[in-house]
Amino acid sequence: MLIDINAYVGHWPFQQLKYNTCEALLQRMNKFGVDVSVISNLNGIFYKNTQSANEELYEEIRSNSKFKDRFIPFAVINPIYAGWRDDLETCVTKLDMKGVRIYPKYHDFDIIDPACIELVKRVRDYGLPVAFNYRMVDSRQRSWMDIGYVVGTAKKEWNLKDIIPIIKAVPDAKYMILNFANAAVLSPEEINLVKNTDLIFDTSGRTITNMAEFLNLYGTNKFAFGTHSPILDYLTGLLRIESLYSNEADENTKELLRSGNAKRMLGL
């Protein structure tokens, strides 16, 4: 079984995307053997009121019965916007959302803003995971209208050290860390925190230049297949797993990466 924990539908305002509807993504999944995709609505990054995007996603998934068993929706919640607590409850209890993706940079709050901490705790209390990502697009080709976290400048793209503060603040939450795009040297304490937290990285990010080394460092229970589709290509995240030699990852380990670790976190 293959579960993609990092996919989207919706639009990116600065560039045309392909395969960015449930229908198109499902065709992609069928072509390349992906059984289930965890998806959010990209529009939620850009709408001031993210709940509109969550409702759009809910309606899109309801629009065709074949979508129901193939997509796992995650809400996008902005914890500094009015009504977010009600939105979260609605997403979990009525819209069947199975997790929350949070975008501190795009929604302009600190990752350990009290509101963000409260959101993570509330999601934790539902028994669901929260997801953060390093970046959405490569800042070197970002639109001049996109957010100003730019590689090579004083205000850089995020690395793992930028995400760790929320893990420290709420260590008993479940975390998906997506698009592992920038490297950082972690202290032994930070490495231990990552290892001891219920956390998985997806395999889409460019910093995973050697999948086997990452498995050795963080553990085989810390990674799950992800594409970052439709922004990144559909296969590189899979190639990181399937090109592992048997002395680097046996079949049991590969199954953890393909679906086992994702199932555990998603409660499937």
């Binding site: 950082a184 040297v185 910093t207 990452f214």
Partner: peptide, 10 residues
């Protein structure tokens, strides 16, 4: 432009 500051590579 990737700087592998944690030593991962190859």
């Amino acid at each position: 432009g990737i700087v592998m500051s944690d030593g991962f590579s190859g």
